[in-house]
Each structure stands twice: as C-alpha cells, then as structure tokens.
C-alpha cells in the first residue's frame, strides 16, 4: 500500500458517498445516469467475487463490502425508491455498445483464461467506460448539478491516483499490470474534458453547463 493508492481509495469512497448522500438527502436522482450506476455495480460484483475466497486484509475486505453495498444501494434508490425523479429520457446511452465489446475483449486479452480472471478483466475494462452514460447524459441535458460534478471529480481523480500508484509500484516493487494500467489510462482520459470544465467553471463558483 502506498499513499497514492490510499488517496485513490479514499477519493473513490468519497465519490460513492457523495452520490449516495445527494440522492438520499435531496430524495432525487435528477441528472444521475442510472445506467452508469448499474455498470458500476456490476464492476464491483464481478471484481470482488474473491471476497469470499481470498482474505487479503481487513481494509481490503471492508472496502469491497462498502463499495458493493453502496453501489447496489444507489441503483436501488435510482430505479426503485426515487424512480419518479429518474430522468430516463436523457439517460439513453446504449450500454450494449459497451458491455459486448468489453465482454469480448476480456475473453481475448487477459492474464489467465480462468473464470475468476476473465471476470476480473471484464470488470477492469468495464470500469474504464462505465462513466460514459453519465457523461453522455450531461451532454444531453447540457448541465449538471454542482454536487454531481463533485461526485464526478472524485470518481475521476481516484483512477488518476491509481495511475500514480502504478508508477510508484513499478519503480519501487517492479510490479505492473498492463491491463489495469491501460484501462486506467482510458478511464482517466475520458474525464479530461470534464476536469477542464470542473476547474474552469465549478471551482470558480459557476454552474457546469455545456457547451462550454
């Protein structure tokens, strides 16, 4: 464990909690892409199956349980409890265009052709594009609530910090996992446009509205 990975995990946790609290407190999931939340929940479920087979550390297991439960709770709030506030007309990204290629790729490019490893690879590839329905929805509505932009900021930051963690681990431990690194790069690059808008608008107290 190094400071960048810990900061990344904290940033990820903050993002997940911000979203859950935003929906719970405002009793509304306006502007939130339920499709992205379903993708994130499947990312955690497919990646953390080893929760029951391998014990790495209390930290590792508890974070996995928190991520899985929060993401499933968020999906529940969006599609059931606050369904009336779900903006389905703008959440129209065709997720099959993500899941099918990602599913195919995880069979073709992986470290080991075993079920657990293919599921882990699927999860890594899926996570790198899981935010697309959310970003697509914001481009369709042309704006985002400020709290939602904070959620996106921490979510984007987390994998960026993981990239630094992988540089650190390569330099000090000689460890690197090309699949995770390439997917992490794609994932972080997808946020670049948002990061630019976040820094130039939201941090200056303006509302995030598109086109810029």
């Amino acid at each position: 464990m190094n400071i960048f990975r810990l900061a990344g995990d904290v940033s990820h946790l903050v993002a997940i909690i911000i979203l859950l609290l935003k929906i719970w407190k405002t009793r509304s999931c306006a502007g939130i892409s339920g499709k992205s939340q379903i993708l994130f929940a499947s990312v955690f479920v497919t990646r953390y199956l080893d929760l029951f087979t391998i014990f790495i550390s209390l930290y590792n297991s508890s974070m996995k349980i928190i991520y899985i439960s929060c993401s499933i709770a968020t999906v529940y709030l969006v599609y059931f409890k606050f369904k009336a506030t779900y903006d389905g007309n703008h959440d129209t990204f065709r997720v099959e265009f993500l899941v099918v290629p990602v599913g195919g790729l995880s069979f073709l490019v992986n470290h080991d052709f075993s079920p657990m490893e293919i599921l882990w690879t699927f999860s890594i590839y899926l996570e790198s594009v899981a935010i697309l329905p959310q970003l697509f929805m914001i481009s369709k509505t042309g704006e985002a609530e400020t709290i939602t932009t904070h959620y996106l900021f921490f979510l984007g930051l987390y994998r960026g910090l993981y990239l630094i963690n992988w540089i650190w681990r390569y330099y000090f431990e000689g460890f690197f996992d090309l699949i995770a690194i390439v997917a992490g790069l794609v994932q972080t690059v997808l946020y670049c446009d948002f990061f630019y808008l976040y820094v130039t608008k939201v941090l200056k107290g303006k509302k995030l509205s598109l086109p810029a």
Partner: peptide
C-alpha cells in the same frame, strides 16, 4: 503468471 495472484488492489 504472478498477476492473477497479486490482486491486492481494489
């Protein structure tokens, strides 16, 4: 290879 063993990251 060793990658499948070291899934110590979240």
């Amino acid at each position: 290879d060793d990658k499948t063993a070291t899934k110590d990251e979240l």
